[in-house]
Amino acid sequence: MPVEAPPGDAPVGEMESEGASEVVTPGLERQAERAKARQGFLLGLPTIIYLFIFFIIPLGFVVAYSFATRTRSGRTELRDFNLDAYARLGDDIIMTVAWRSLWMSVVTTIICLILAYPLAYFISTRTPAVRNMMLVGVMIPFWSNFLIRTYAWRVLLDSDGLVTQAFEAIGLGDGRILFTSNAVILGLVYGYLPFMVLPLYAAIERIDWSLVEGARDLYASGWAAFRRVVWPLSRPGVIAGSMLVFVPSFGAYVTPAILGGNKEGLLGSYIVLQFLSARNGPVGSAVSVVVLAVMLISTLIYFRSGGKNL
């Protein structure tokens, strides 16, 4: 049976002259569309259910925990919901850790940007064969074991490690930076640098170089052409890369655990401490919620600035 087309459905009006049978089509099409939509939903359903149980509900529990009550024995009970844990966020200890996390992750992001931009530029201006090889060269550390890659620096920075010996040999003074914030930043840069290179490469590779040529033809210097054309066009990559480095650095746990001393813990370390040692679920959860909020805000900034996918 023919379903009346909504007023906005232009094709129906256009086809009216072609006969009655054509008028039926939108209804049938819509039915077919609806059937297809249902199939798509059913296909996605098992995953939706899985992620609901093992991701959304856990997320809900962490949010609920941040408002929950801690009993004397260190258990967290989901009753008498309150804001105590959030009030604790202003404590000196937590503020110190939060500021340290913030500046360390900002410094890490800036160093990564400075190191990665020229490399990404270099890769994207190679011939396709060389480019692919170099990309694989970046992706291998990107995906391979983060823990062990961080540990490799511990071997180098150890009191009789190669870097320490080299520092002393060339007279740069005391090379012992292990267990300092410098070692943590070094580890973070090393760990997350590929996260910066890849989105930068994707953005620079897409640039239409005839624009640069146009700028040069109009007597722009090489530097001016870069600053006015290449840099603005690569900005989505800069923002994506910065986000992908900043967010994990901000919540880092493994790197400070291996390269930092007791005093260089970041927010990630603090959360772990609250759950595994101090047994303070509400405060640990509240800090987790803050880290999550930072992640969501950075993601929103990324999408706002024209990013499409990660």
Partner: peptide
């Protein structure tokens, strides 16, 4: 959107979520 979250969420947050979830359920 939800499908992207597990990729960008910091490890520690995911870990805490799982710990709390399994202890409650």
């Amino acid at each position: 959107a939800v499908l992207y979250l597990p990729i960008i969420i910091p490890d520690v947050t995911m870990a805490v979520m799982m710990l709390v979830f399994f202890s409650e359920t």
